[in-house]
């Protein structure tokens, strides 16, 4: 179990480190990094490279956004196996439905609950101030 966690740490960390080097060297905006990572995940899955990585590193490969791409591709392949050509348009989002739904629903709810705050100011520094 410890080995599994270490593997997740190493692979997940590495995927983040690569993105950091790209950001620092190319000034690519964070939104573009996210998009590239998802597309890279689909592409690597298509080449048959990502599945072994998931088997090796577990959450180290599924938690980074390349894992989101992997889920899209995996869902597509599964739906095609099941329904044929229809799976091309039904599989991808089905494979990621839980993640997207959670993000959208929780995002909406928290937008209703939380106030917007100045950058780098959190509720801790705010409550200190009112004292």
């Amino acid at each position: 179990m410890i080995i599994g966690i270490l593997k997740a740490f190493a692979v997940g960390g590495l995927l983040c480190a690569v993105a950091q080097v790209i950001i620092d060297k190319t000034k690519l905006t964070p939104a573009r990094i996210l998009v590239s990572y998802v597309c890279a995940g689909v592409f690597l899955t298509a080449l048959g490279l990502y599945r072994p990585l998931v088997e090796f590193a577990g959450a180290g490969a599924t938690v980074p956004l390349t894992g989101f791409g992997y889920s899209l591709a995996k869902g597509t392949a599964k739906a095609i196996d099941q329904y044929g050509a229809f799976g091309i348009i039904s599989g991808g989002l089905a494979g990621t439905a839980a993640g997207i739904t959670a993000a959208v629903v929780l995002g909406f709810t928290s937008a209703l609950v939380f106030p917007s705050r100045p950058k780098f100011k959190n509720f801790i520094s705010e409550s200190k101030k009112t004292k």
Binding site: I5, A8, G12, Q20, V21, D24, K25, G60, V63
Partner: peptide, 27 residues
């Protein structure tokens, strides 16, 4: 210049920790 080495080490450690936490949750 952006402090690439420092940035990358921090990204590696924090990103890795999030994934390791995810793996522990999965177990």
């Amino acid at each position: 210049p952006s402090p690439v080495v420092k940035d990358t080490v921090k990204a590696f450690v924090i990103g890795g920790t999030i994934c390791a936490f995810g793996q522990a949750l999965q177990y």
